[in-house]
Amino acid sequence: MPANKKYLTPSASQRFAKITAAILGGLMVAVMFHMALASWFNHVAIIITSTFSAFILWAVLMVLAFLGKNGWKVWGIYLLASLVLFVIFYFGKQTNPLV
Rank of each mutant, 00 (worst) to 15 (best):
S53M: 12
F55R: 05
W75V: 08
M62K: 05
Y90E: 05
H43P: 11
F41C: 04
G76R: 07
Y78P: 00
F89Q: 13
M62W: 08
V31H: 00
F86E: 11
N70D: 08
I56W: 03
I77T: 10
N70L: 10
F41I: 13
V60I: 02
V60M: 02
T49S: 11
M62I: 10
T49I: 12
F52L: 12
F52R: 15
V63G: 13
N70Y: 02
A36M: 03
I47G: 00
G71L: 05
F86L: 08
H34Y: 09
H43S: 06
N70C: 10
N70P: 02
Y78F: 10
K69M: 15
F86A: 07
M32V: 14
G71W: 01
A30C: 01
F91K: 09
A54Y: 11
L57M: 06
F41S: 13
F89N: 14
L37W: 09
F91L: 07
S50H: 15
L57W: 04
H34R: 04
A59D: 14
F66Q: 03
V74L: 08
W72Q: 07
S50C: 10
I47S: 00
S53A: 13
F55P: 11
F41E: 14
A81M: 07
L83K: 01
M35P: 01
F86S: 15
A38P: 01
A65R: 05
A81Q: 13
L80A: 14
F91T: 03
L83T: 03
L37M: 14
I77A: 02
M32L: 13
H43L: 04
S50T: 11
L79Q: 08
M35W: 06
F89D: 09
T51E: 05
F33Q: 01
F86H: 06
W58N: 04
A36W: 00
L80Y: 05
L57G: 00
F91P: 04
W75N: 12
M32H: 06
F91A: 03
I56V: 14
I88S: 07
V84L: 14
M35K: 05
F66Y: 08
W72H: 07
N70S: 02
V63Q: 08
W72N: 11
G68K: 15
L85C: 02
L85Y: 11
I56L: 15
A36E: 00
L85V: 15
V74F: 09
A65V: 09
L61D: 02
